Simulated scan of single mutants.
Amino acid sequence: MIRLIAFIVLLIPGLIAAWGIKLMRDTLFGILYSPIPFGWLQFLVGFIMMAAGIGFFAGFLLRRDRRKGRVQERFKQK
């Protein structure tokens, strides 16, 4: 059960990051979605979504590896 919860916790930010990448790609091809009026704004929203999703995923993995002692000295907390 715990593995399923961890999978869901990682799936949601992964989907958000994928949607952000899709928004940025669609902006480059000139496809705008109705709630966002400008291309640059759509690209910015996509970039923020991608960065937040990848950042959450990376932070989750770093925290897990710190607890298990699998990180280098420079990543260990003081």
Rank of each mutant, 00 (worst) to 15 (best):
M1W: 12
I2R: 15
R3K: 15
R3W: 10
R3M: 07
L4C: 07
I5F: 15
I5D: 14
A6V: 11
F7M: 12
F7C: 11
F7H: 10
V9F: 13
V9E: 12
L10K: 13
L11P: 02
L11N: 06
L11I: 12
I12G: 03
I12V: 14
I12R: 11
I12T: 13
P13Q: 05
P13Y: 01
P13C: 02
L15W: 06
L15T: 07
A18I: 11
W19C: 11
G20M: 02
I21M: 08
K22Q: 04
K22L: 06
K22S: 11
L23N: 02
M24I: 09
M24S: 08
D26M: 10
L28M: 14
G30D: 04
I31G: 01
S34M: 09
S34H: 13
P35T: 10
I36K: 02
P37D: 11
F38A: 13
G39Y: 08
G39T: 00
W40H: 06
W40G: 03
W40A: 07
W40Y: 13
V45F: 03
G46T: 02
F47M: 11
F47I: 01
F47R: 02
M49S: 09
M50N: 06
M50I: 11
A51R: 12
G53S: 06
G53P: 02
F56V: 10
F57I: 15
A58K: 14
G59L: 07
F60W: 12
F60A: 11
R63K: 14
R64S: 12
R64D: 04
R67A: 09
R67L: 08
K68Q: 00
K68G: 00
K68I: 03
G69F: 02
G69P: 00
R70G: 01
R70F: 03
V71G: 03
E73H: 14
E73C: 03
R74K: 10
Q77V: 14
K78E: 12
K78R: 15
